[in-house]
Each structure stands twice: as C-alpha cells, then as structure tokens.
Write a protein that binds this DNA or RNA. Sequence first.
DNA 1: TCTGGGGTCCTAGGACCC
DNA 2: TCTGGGGTCCTAGGACCC
Length: 433
Amino acid sequence: MFALIDGNNFYVSCERVFQPQLIGRPVISLSNNDGCTISRSNEAKNLGIKMGQPWFEIRHLEKEAGLVALSSNFTLYGDMSNRMMQIAAELGPAQEIYSIDESFIGLHGVPGDLVQRCHEIRSRILKWVGIPCGVGIGATKTRAKLANHIAKTAERKPGIYPAQLAQVCNLEALPASDVDVILAATDVGEVWGVGRQIGKQLKALGVHSVLDLAHLSPTMVKKRWNVVLERTVRELQGEPCIALDDAPPPKQQIACTRSFGQPISTLPPLVQAVSDFASRAAEKLREQDSVAGQLLVFAHTSPFRGGPQFSRHSVVKLLRPTSDSRLLVKAAIDGITSIYSRGFQLIKAGIILLDIMPTTVRQCELDFGDIDSSSTANLMATLDALNHRFGRGAVSIASAGLPRSQRVWTMKQERLSPHYTTRWSDLPIVKAN
DNA sequence: TCTGGGGTCCTAGGACCC
DNA sequence: TCTGGGGTCCTAGGACCC
C-alpha cells in the first residue's frame, strides 16, 4: 500500500505563507525570466490560466481580474519542501521524495485507520509549515497518484467526486462498485504515465475514462503500445509493478540551461553564460560525488520567432572524467566557440554533463595531470563552501569576465525578492512526533 | 515585445565482434 | 553472383514526469 502526498499549488502556497494577503486572490508563479506560468492558485485556475501558459498571453488579467504574478524563488520553495517532507515521512516506514512537492510513502505495516492518520499528518503540515496538501492512498503507486488526484479535485470542484474523499482519498477502502463509478468519471489523461500522445491514441480507440483503460488487456497494451503503458494498466488493476524508490541512484545526467532575457548574438556573453552553467553543473556533480566524461553544450534561436534559425550542439570529451570546475568550464567554452556563428539571435543555451560515474580514489589520483590532486580537491571544496556560505555565484571561474550587471540572463538564485531575506537555516527545524 | 528547466525510461537501429 | 546468427554496446529519438 502506498500514499502519495503533495502540496497543493505548491509554489503559490509557499508564497502565501509569507504574504497572507495573497490568500483568496488569483496568484501565479512564473518561470525564469518571468516567461511562463509554473504554479497557479485555485483562483488563477478558475480564470482559465493553463500550466505553462506564457505570461504575455495572460498579463491583461492583472488589471482585469486582479491577478498577482510572482517571480519564482526556488531557494524558498526548496526549504519549504524540506520541512514538508520531514513531516510527511511520519506517515509510514519508507519515503520516496518524487519531486519538490510530492512524496510517496510506503505504508507497509502501518497500523490503525490510514485515512485518519493521513488527515492528522496533513493537518500538521498545514499548521506547522503552512502548506495545504492532498493525500491519495492506493495498492500501487499509480492508484495512489489517482487517489491523490481525486482527493484534490473533490476539494476544489465539489460535485465531481463524493465530498468525503476531499483532501484524503483511500481508493482501497471503497466498495468496488464505487471505485468503478469514480474511475469512469475520470479522464484517461489523468493517469500517471498517460501523456498527450498516448492519451490521444487511447481516445481514438474509444478508451476515454480511467475505467476503460483499467479494463484493457495488459498483453494487448504491450503489443499495441509498449511495456511502460502495460505496467500502467497492471498498476491500475492493482498489481504493483513500480517499486518505492527511497534511495535514488546518483544522476546520470546533470544539466544547466537557461533562456536569456534578451537574445544574444555575440560570442562573449555566450561564453560567459556557458561558463556559469558549467560551474553550476560541476557543483551539482560534486554534490553527488561523481565525475563526468563528456560535456554537451548547445545554443539555439527562438522557434517562436521568425528570422534565421540556429540550433547546434557540440559534445566535448574530457581528457579524463572529472568534476573540476576549471576543466568543465574550459570544455564548455571550447564547445560553444566551435559551434558559434555570427548573425543569429540566440535565445537559449545550456550544458549537459554526460557519461557520469562515481568518483573513485584512482580517478582522484589520475585527475588533472600535473596539478596536485589533493590541492584540486581542496580548491573545489573551498569553492563550494564559499558559494554555499555567501550565495551562489559569489566565487566563480574567471573566463570571459563580464560583470554581473552586464549579463543578459539571470540565475534564479540572483532574483530573490527583497521579501525573502530571512536566513532559512536560522529558523528552528520542526520535529514531528 | 513576451513562450521553463530540469529529469527518467524505453526502443530501434547501427557498429562491431566472433 | 552467392553471403549466418547471435551477442553487446552505443546513440538518437520519443514518450513520459513535475
């Protein structure tokens, strides 16, 4: 048995904890460069604002409907997430943190009334962190996801589902006939693992509801589609196919990419940008104690605009797998310089670290040729410590050397609004008992 | 004027080997 | 001109997730 607990409208809910005057108003959180919508309050959803919708399409709602749009603040969201996850972990013996705002809980061996327990944890998170959550319980992760959708929808749109399923929904505690009614009332596209493409194909074949999908033969689904959808069908039918992943392996790819505030057409700011991206990615790499063998760097023009289009990438093989910021920055610069061409309005660039493997003692020794390996490790550790202490980008690799004020992109963490100057580490950690 | 930034898994097909 | 079968590894691309 699994529970899925997630924060409602997470980023907006985080903002509202510190700006209670936003409660009851339509509020959205915007992506980097305030490009598009990444979180919406219920009031914003009711205005018809879609997930991912570009800001320029909806900004008229500021005046017309009192919409409040906020730049995102991922430092804040990450900290709120940690607090929420700590309390959510009390639900059961195992936890998989699935994303910044949701976690699966393994409920094996948990005694007593599960629904009541979930309500208690939910109230505790609301009271101690300030984030409203929904909880779904099911025999499989897919059913728990579905139950979570029902719990949230029952709360937000009364009438579609039984009112007592609001906030916490245990699919397995309902009579089978009730479950069928609920599944029949739910669009197949709501199922975890069914996206736009597959959803369209299913509907073309008359599979419209979750119940329709659950009634398909897994063998046929595998033949007609693939094993991924087959697993989804089996999970819907109650057969666990996806295990709780409470100790995720180190990442196999680490990316750092950004859209620019304004297009770039010259090399120096591009070099500066990919240098920063490579530095940040190198930090992430060292955080998981890995090294990368290759670095991919890319840049492209906007597909939404006219004019000559440019989209190129280059894969740079490192001499040896490394996590040294200096070598990765150099590789990024070499790569971008090799693909750069004049005359294009570049709107986005990024780097992706590939061929990632764990750092081993031997690799440490081999690393950096004539540079002493222990001093390199010390240097990188110092770099990370300084940036942790004084904020991201406080110390960086000197490459093209554009002052921050002349940059044409923003790293998210540089855009903290003045409201959020609290040092989160100074606040007491709440312990749940 | 203005359109995010991460990740994962799976499959097909090519290169290469014996 | 005729030209096996099976295995592995790698990569690109497509689908999905939040």
